[in-house]
Amino acid sequence: MSIWEYANPKKFVETTTPLLPWTFGLSGLCLVGGLIWGFFFTPDDYRQGATVKIIYLHVPSALMAINAWLMMLVASLIWLVRRHHVSALAARAAAPVGVTMTLVALVTGAIWGQPMWGTWWAWDPRLTSFLILFLFYLGYMALWEAIADPDTAADLTSVLCIVGSVFALLSRYAVNFWNQGLHQGASLSLDAEKNVADIFYYPLLACIAGFVLLFIALVLMRTRTEIRVRRIRALELRARRAEART
């Protein structure tokens, strides 16, 4: 069985129907559990005090803001290479989720930055690249709405997605490229170095799992909606053609 079978809209809807309640349920469980654990049962940081509790929202949302764009990039490339409509619709469905995650990261970052840095905002490399990523998300969504022909819209938004990927990657690695600005290095990374103490790390992992699952659940639900919108348009077109013939 090939993975490309799921590019069939009917097959996609059939397969995701039983998955949706599980992904929503698990994401709710991880999010509620992780946030309660982090908020109520972890101590204050010796330097940052109680503001460390913002980490359970800021880090997972920032992580998802970048990875949502990378998921859109993969879906856009599949559209450009293989012309599977479901992949273009999945990219479109992920954008509002990604923009919300970016907004959550920007808002929590500003709220956290004010007591720690003494300012809500600084033109720091990571903050600035995140703001540009947020604007790219808005531009991407606006472009989908602005073009009537769905295939042309998918083509142009895919190109925009490839261009915006530079900022998605930049927002992740900006602190490594430029040793300036207020933002600290990555809290979590794939290298062996651990930057967060265990007592904060495990509830943070639960929150990250919750955000990832919520993203998957929302993208599945929104992609199914986009598939249904296409189907409605096709039926309306068919009805108009039948009317014109009679």
């Binding site: 908020f39 005090g49 109680a50 509002p96 989720v97 959550v104 929590t108």
Partner: peptide, 24 residues
């Protein structure tokens, strides 16, 4: 929990984030 002088920022961060996610 006793959030000390940072009660405002922490509560606002949670309210704003959970609010945005619920709206979505």
């Amino acid at each position: 929990p006793d959030l000390g002088p940072y009660a405002g920022p922490v509560i606002w961060a949670y309210v704003a984030s959970i609010g945005l996610i619920l709206v979505l």
